[in-house]
């Protein structure tokens, strides 16, 4: 996933060129606002605006849907359980009773999750990781956390590539995954082997870093100072994702 995110992060929209610090400053409070949104219609409008921003950033629908589908499992549980578990006025379908209130709450949760996920994608898909790290450091996030984040993302798909090679090697020797003690044992061996390889790689990476004079403090090249354009774009993000949907909803309710 990080790979595909990095592919899109090299675009050229205003969002791509925006200072990561201002992007974080704008999107974090918006995400908090969305989590606190009280009604599904407002959450729905915010979701539509977030989709509009994603499209503006040039991210294709197919890619967006595949990314949003990553939270589908959780949403399906919420969407199925809440309507039948909240006792209130509703309708029956065979032996199952659905409540209007339950459907409303399920819609609210689903839309909140989809919107926050969209905002996360908006941030990650328009910001190269090195810029994000600089942004996080610039906002005062502790060095250690930024190092853990960047190094984890840098090496997670090397680990993924190693896992793929192990799986290929297993298949080449006729292994088929199934529900048997042999299969469980093999999975455990693979996980153990991955763990050991990761530990060995971590040691070598630490050695290589020390060889380049790393003494525990992450230093990065500086970014240009604040631009008025970044501040305005941050304001536009906040207004369009919080104030605008709220105003639209007020107008709809009035008429």
């Amino acid at each position: 996933m990080t790979l595909t995110l990095r592919d899109w992060a090299s675009g050229n929209s205003l969002l791509h060129r925006m200072d990561a610090r201002w992007k974080l400053v704008a999107l974090f409070p918006v995400a908090c606002f969305i989590v606190a949104v009280p009604h599904w219609t407002l959450a729905g409008l915010t979701f539509l605006v977030s989709l509009a921003w994603l499209r503006y950033a040039g991210l294709p629908w197919k890619w967006l849907i595949s990314r949003l589908a990553s939270v589908a499992g959780f949403l399906m549980i919420v969407g199925l359980v809440l309507p039948v578990s909240i006792p209130a006025e509703g309708w029956s379908f065979g032996p199952v009773r659905f409540s209007y209130r339950g459907v409303e709450i399920a819609a609210l949760v689903v839309l909140r999750v989809l919107t926050v996920t969209s905002l996360g994608l908006l941030l990650l898909a328009t910001t190269p990781l090195d810029c994000l790290a600089r942004g996080l450091l610039g906002l005062g996030l502790p060095q250690v956390l930024v190092q853990i984040l960047t190094m984890s993302l840098r090496y997670v798909y090397l680990l993924g590539a190693e896992l793929s090679r192990i799986r290929l090697a297993l298949r080449a020797r006729g292994y088929q995954r199934g529900f048997s003690p042999h299969s469980y044992r093999t999975t455990a061996y693979v996980l153990g082997s991955l763990l050991l390889r990761s530990q060995e790689r971590a040691e070598r990476v630490a050695q290589a870093m020390r060889c380049r004079a790393f003494a525990g403090q992450l230093r990065l090249l500086s970014v240009p100072g604040n631009h008025l354009g970044d501040v305005l774009l941050a304001l536009l993000l906040v207004v369009s994702l919080s104030l605008l949907p709220w105003l639209v909803l007020q107008c709809i309710q009035r008429f």
Partner: peptide, 16 residues
């Protein structure tokens, strides 16, 4: 891969 720790080659070369 043990040595290339950054997300761009430029940043990695600047690391040392």
């Amino acid at each position: 891969d043990d040595q290339l720790i950054h997300w761009t080659v430029y940043d990695d070369v600047a690391f040392g």
